[in-house]
Lab assay of single mutants.
Amino acid sequence: GTEIELESKNGQREHYTATSEDEARKIIEKAVRRGIKRIELRGASEQLIRDMQEIAKQIGLQYRTDGSL
């Protein structure tokens, strides 16, 4: 699965493990709508990382991946 670590603007951290790319995408989209400061992805697919970079650029988000592409 993909591990997703979120940090909201007030510094609250949340951790999710998505079993599918679809689920990961839903978690990320929800977080973005809620207003999130930072997202870290571990074990994400190349496609998901590309999507994440696109989203991050659009809304000026900090993100990090573990680089295991």
Score class of each variant (00 low, 15 high):
Lys30Met: 13
Arg64Glu: 15
Gln58Ala: 12
Leu69Val: 12
Gln47Cys: 10
Ile39Ala: 02
Glu46Val: 09
Leu6Ser: 01
Lys9Pro: 11
Gln47Ala: 12
Glu40Asp: 09
Glu54Gln: 11
Glu3Phe: 11
Ser45Gln: 02
Asn10Tyr: 07
Ala56Tyr: 04
Gly43Arg: 05
Leu61Thr: 02
Gly35Tyr: 02
Arg64Gly: 15
Lys9Asp: 13
Gly1Pro: 13
Asn10Gln: 07
Lys9His: 12
Gly60Cys: 15
Ile59Gln: 14
Arg34Gly: 12
Glu29Ile: 08
Gly1Trp: 13
Leu6Val: 14
Ile49Thr: 06
Glu7Ser: 06
Asp22Ala: 10
Leu48Glu: 00
Glu3His: 12
Glu5Asn: 11
Glu21Pro: 07
Gln62Cys: 15
Arg13Met: 10
Ala56Leu: 04
Asn10Met: 07
Ile36Gly: 00
Gln62Asp: 15
Tyr16Ser: 02
His15Trp: 13
Lys37His: 12
Ala31Asp: 00
Val32Glu: 01
Lys57Pro: 03
Asn10Asp: 14
Thr19Trp: 11
Asn10Lys: 06
Lys26Leu: 12
Glu7Phe: 07
Arg50Tyr: 10
Ser20Arg: 03
Ile59Tyr: 15
Asp66Ala: 03
Glu54Pro: 02
Gln58Cys: 14
Ala44Asp: 03
Ala18Ile: 10
Arg25Ile: 09
Gln53Asn: 08
Ile59Asn: 15
Glu7Thr: 11
Glu21Cys: 07
Glu54Leu: 08
Glu54Lys: 09
Gly43Met: 05
Ser68Phe: 06
Leu41His: 01
Leu61Ile: 14
Tyr63Thr: 15
Glu7Asp: 04
Arg34Met: 13
Asn10Leu: 08
Arg33Cys: 14
Gly1Val: 13
Lys9Tyr: 11
Glu23Arg: 03
Ile49Trp: 06
Ile27Phe: 08
Ile49His: 09
Ile28Ala: 01
Gln12Arg: 09
Ala44Cys: 08
Gly1Met: 13
Glu21Met: 08
Ala24Pro: 00
Ser8Glu: 12
Val32Asn: 01
Met52Lys: 00
Leu48Lys: 00
Thr2Gln: 04
Asp22Asn: 06
Lys57Phe: 07
Arg34Thr: 12
Ala18Gly: 10
Thr65Gln: 06
Ile55Gln: 02
Leu61Gly: 05
Leu61Lys: 04
Ser8Met: 14
Gln62Pro: 03
Arg34Ser: 09
Arg25Ser: 02
Glu29Gln: 10
Ala24Ser: 02
Leu61Asp: 12
